[in-house]
Amino acid sequence: MEFKTFVFYFLSAILVFAGLRVITARNPVHAALFLVLAFFTASGVWVLLQAEFLAMALVLVYVGAVMVLFLFVVMMLDINLDRLREGFWSYLPLGSIIALLMVAEMGMVLGGNYLGFLESGVRQTAADESNVQAVGRLMFTEYVYPFELASVILLVGIVAAVALTQRGRRKNKAVNPSQQVFVKARDRVRVLQMPAEKRD
């Protein structure tokens, strides 16, 4: 067995295991961490395919930024998994239809390529040819309009996110002393009595 094949199967085994653990792990943070592992190994497989730009972009964007924000949210939420699992059987038909559709789509793309129905075979590139340069050149010549369109959509997304969370500007930070003088302790502090919680 060639070394490359061994690396491929090694990475694929980890990838499949991590993918399965994403949906079976009970702890949502663990699930998110397995997703990180899945992304990382997927980028390893892409390096094997000589798509080093895509591989590094995957790590940089998804592992380095998206999953971190994802973890932020997952860690903050108090997710009760048992309640999430309640509707499993009623959602199963819809979920399986979507899963079947995705399998069919992948089958068409990958199987068509494998059997030779589609023309685009994976072109082998020379070792010294820079993947990044090739992607950049294509992006700014042939695909310049789709690229610009995508960036405008992202810009709209940014503006929308800012507009949703913007609560108006605070004009100055000066405090009013006369209001400060009349503040009572009970205006600011509320003492709560809570029973101690037991760890589960």
Partner: peptide
Amino acid sequence: NASLLYIMSITSIGVYGII
């Protein structure tokens, strides 16, 4: 060839240690 990109993506993983 893409060593700068490699460094940027590898160092971006460091934040996981903290979080």
